[in-house]
């Protein structure tokens, strides 16, 4: 890697200027748990690394207008220790917690997981289900987009060269809401998801679903937000018929590949299984039960 430069700017403006001024490949470093592996293997040869962790606020969690804002580079372990996030978005917290080992938890971030743009990223289906938005900063200023508009393909994002994510906004949580994320891996830890499923629901007083967002990971080139799964839930309690429809909708949405982590048949079938299981947890949480997913 000849000529690699590392910088750690202390302001958004400085970071954006550095990114904009780079002539070669410039990479934003948050936790580095993907970037350093890619650099070591030679798959990624940046000329400039912009470490964003010294930018004020980018490692913090705060409440604003009833919602929560999580700094883009906040390590997983910090999010997991945050009471407000655990209360409002246990599915997101659990999803982030599933990324890698304890060691990786000390570094990995939502922004890194999203911008690495792997279809198997654990936190991303949960972010999609949560209707989180990404606040993006760049030379042209600041913009806010739904998280599902960030990844555009494996390893590709909609961010311009001089842009990076500053923070994520999680909307205020209505009463009777719950979310969940489940993934399947061959071992109990340390694997990349073979299939992942995020579900967020809001129920009425009688347990009927009034709003739902559902997502699937590792079954298509990007994480999928699946409207048909949400449609299977909205207007229903979680009875067997609803679960069967959800399972079918999940399987129908899958466009997976055969690879070293799973087959098309396996991924498709397990997507349905995880959808049912995640929905149960999300509904239980929306009904006020405390449920541990893992």
């Amino acid at each position: 890697m000849p000529g690699l430069t590392y910088t750690a700017p202390t302001s958004v403006d400085a970071a954006v200027k550095l990114l904009a001024g780079s002539s070669g490949l410039a990479k934003v470093l948050s936790g580095g748990t993907d970037l350093l592996v890619q650099m070591r293997s030679g798959r990624m040869k940046p000329e400039l690394i912009v470490d964003t962790k010294k930018i004020p606020g980018i490692m913090d969690i705060r409440e604003e207008n009833g919602g929560l804002i999580v700094g883009a580079a906040t390590p997983g372990a910090v999010v997991e220790a945050n009471a407000a996030m655990n209360k409002a978005w246990p599915g997101v917290v659990e999803a982030l917690d599933l990324i890698g080992s304890t060691q990786v938890q000390g570094r990995c971030s939502l922004a890194g997981n999203l911008c690495n743009a792997s279809p198997a990223a654990d936190s991303v289906p949960a972010l999609y289900a949560a209707a989180a938005t990404a606040v993006i900063v760049g030379s042209k200023g600041r913009r806010e987009i739904p998280v599902e508009q960030v990844p555009t393909g494996p390893g590709r994002t909609s961010l311009a060269k001089d842009e990076f994510i500053l923070e994520f906004k999680f909307p205020p949580r209505p009463a009777h809401s719950g979310d969940a994320y489940l993934r399947f891996i061959p071992r109990t830890e340390m694997d990349i998801a073979v299939v992942g499923c995020g579900i967020s629901v809001t129920l009425d007083d009688k347990g009927v679903c009034t709003a739902a967002r559902c997502s699937l990971g590792a079954v298509a080139p990007t994480v999928l937000l699946v409207q048909a799964m949400a449609d299977a839930l909205v207007g229903h309690t979680l009875d067997d018929a609803t679960l069967a429809k959800l399972d079918a909708a999940a399987q129908a949405a899958c466009k997976p590949i055969n690879d070293k982590r799973g087959t098309i048949e396996y991924r498709t079938k397990v997507a349905g299984v995880l959808a049912r299981r995640a929905a149960k947890i999300a509904f239980d949480r929306a009904s006020g039960k405390t449920v541990k997913a893992h």
């Binding site: 590392y6 580095g32 748990t33 350093l36 592996v37 690394i49 080992s101 990786v104 570094r107």
Partner: peptide, 24 residues
């Protein structure tokens, strides 16, 4: 970052030192 043999504490946080840049 898959084996943990390089684990160190960085400001008290457990990390793989192979996934941290020396400059950090």
């Amino acid at each position: 970052g898959d084996c943990g043999a390089c684990s160190v504490l960085l400001d008290g946080t457990l990390v793989c030192s192979c996934l941290v840049l020396g400059v950090e």
